[in-house]
Amino acid sequence: MWTKIVPITAFIASVSLTSGTAYAAPTTPVGGEALGSHGLVSPDGVKKPPKSKATSYVIADVGTGQVLAAKNAHGRYLPASTLKALTALTLIPKLDRNRQIRPSRNACNQEGSAVGLSVKAKYKVEDLFKGLMMSSGNDAAMALAETNGGLDKTMRDMNAEAKRLQANDTVAKTPSGLDKPGQSSSAYDLALIARAGLANPDFKRYISTKTANFPAPKGKHYQISNHNKLLWRYQGMIGVKNGWTSKAKASFVGAATRGGHTIVVSIMRHEGFFWDEVAKLLDWGFSVRGKATPVGKLVDPLPDPQAAAQPQASTSVTPAAQPALLDRAGSKQTDSTRTMGALVIGGGLLFGLIWLAYGIRRKRGRSRL
C-alpha cells in the first residue's frame, strides 16, 4: 500500500476531431496513478522519506524500475543543465568518440558554464562528452550539436529520444539546458533518462569520472573536475548531472550503487544547498528497497520502430517455389478465410465462363454478317 497526499483530480480531455467525434485522452500518468499527485506519495509500513526543500523529486530502484517515493513527480519545470543527460544519451550512439573536430566560434562563445573550448584547438568527441558531463560545458554541448549535423537536427533527435523513453514531460529547446521558453522536464523524466543512460557504458564512464586531462591549444592540457560533489562524499556514487540557473533554481539527478543495487534520485526546483538532502534520500532508498510496496514504476522505452520493422520479401517467385508458398498460405487459413477464398475463386471462374460464352456469341454474330 502507499499513502497519497494532496491528490490531483484525474481528468479526461476531449479533442474534437475533423469527423466531429470526441477522443478521450488517457488519464493515468506515465508510471502509475499515484504519480499524478502534486504532493508526497510514499509506501505504508516503512518510515517516511527525509524532508526535502525540492519542489519535486523521485526516488527509484534502477534495477527493477520501482518508484519508491515521489513528490510532484510529473511537475514540469526548467531542467537547467540536468538536460545535458538527455544530450549525452542521444548523441553518444550517433557520434564516433574518436572523431576529432575543431569547434566553431559560436560553440566557443556560449554563455554560462564552459569547459573552455578554443577555435585554436582540436578535440575528440570523447573530450567533448567529458566536458559536457563533468564540467557542464555549454560550449561542449553546442560543439556536439554542431558535430551531429546542427542545432535543429540535434533538437529533433533529443526530443525523439525523450518520446522513445516515454519522458513525455520533457521538451528540449537547447542542448545545454540554458533556459528557453517552452523547455521543460520533470523529476520522473530525469529518473527515466538517467536509468537509460546508466545502461550505456560510455555514458556511465563519463558521469563517474572525477578528474580528467582536457586538451588546450598548442598541444597542452589542463585538468577538469566533475561538478557532482557526491562523487567524493557518498559511498557508491556513480554520478549523473546537476544543474542551476536563476530561473530553474537547483536541479539534480544522480545514482549510487550499494550491495549490487542502484538507487536513483532526481530533484527539481531546490532553493539552496541540496547535496546533504540528496544523500539522505539515497540512504532512505537503499533502506526500504525490497521492503516497501512501490508507488509507481519507471517505464521501459518504447520499441524501436526500425528494429521492429520486418524486411520485406522479394516479390519475384520462381515456379518451383509457388506450390510451397500456396501450401504455407493454405495451412494458415481459418474456416472463414477458406470460405472467402472459395467464394472469390468460384466467383472468378463463373465470371470467366460467362465472359467466354459472351465472346463466342459475339464472334459467331460477326461471322454471320
Rank of each mutant, 00 (worst) to 15 (best):
L231K: 00
A212C: 14
A196S: 13
I224D: 08
F252G: 04
S185V: 06
R205K: 15
N242S: 09
V264G: 02
K241D: 00
N242Y: 03
S186A: 05
S185F: 10
H270A: 05
A187C: 12
G197E: 04
Q235W: 10
I224F: 01
T257M: 03
G197Y: 09
I238C: 04
H270T: 02
N200C: 14
I224V: 12
F203N: 04
A212N: 10
K247D: 13
F214P: 08
Q235C: 10
S185K: 10
F252R: 01
A187S: 14
A196C: 07
P215A: 13
A187G: 02
L192C: 02
K249D: 12
D202F: 12
D202I: 06
W244S: 02
Y222Q: 04
G219P: 06
I193D: 03
M237C: 07
S225Y: 10
V240C: 01
A256L: 09
V264H: 00
A196M: 10
L198Y: 08
A191R: 08
R233L: 05
S184R: 06
G260D: 01
N213M: 12
G236R: 08
P217L: 11
G243M: 11
Y188G: 01
A194V: 04
F273R: 14
F203Q: 09
G239K: 09
F203A: 11
L190M: 15
H261K: 13
P217C: 06
K229I: 11
G272T: 08
R269E: 04
F252I: 02
I207L: 07
A212L: 11
P217S: 13
R233V: 07
Y188R: 01
H221R: 15
P217H: 05
F203W: 11
A199M: 09
W232A: 10
S246A: 15
I207P: 02
K204M: 07
Y188P: 04
W232T: 12
H221S: 13
M237V: 03
G260L: 02
Y234S: 03
M237W: 03
A255E: 08
H227G: 13
I193V: 12
D202R: 07
S184P: 06
A256D: 00
K229F: 01
L190Y: 09
F273T: 14
I193L: 01
G243I: 11
A194P: 03
V253P: 02
M268L: 14
A250N: 15
K210R: 12
A212T: 08
Q223D: 08
K210Q: 15
K220E: 07
G219I: 01
G243C: 13
I207M: 00
R205P: 15
L198S: 00
T262H: 03
A248D: 10
Q223L: 12
L231Y: 10
A216P: 10
N213I: 13
L231F: 07
Q235T: 13
H261G: 00
T211G: 08
K249G: 05
L198A: 00
P215R: 09
A187D: 01
W232H: 05
L192V: 04
I224H: 06
S185D: 04
S266E: 01
A248F: 07
V240S: 03
P201K: 14
K229Q: 12
P201Q: 12
I193G: 06
K220H: 01
G219R: 11
A199P: 10
K204Y: 11
K204F: 14
D202V: 14
W244E: 12
S251D: 06
I224S: 05
T209K: 07
Y222I: 10
F273Y: 13
K229A: 10
K210A: 08
I207K: 00
H261S: 12
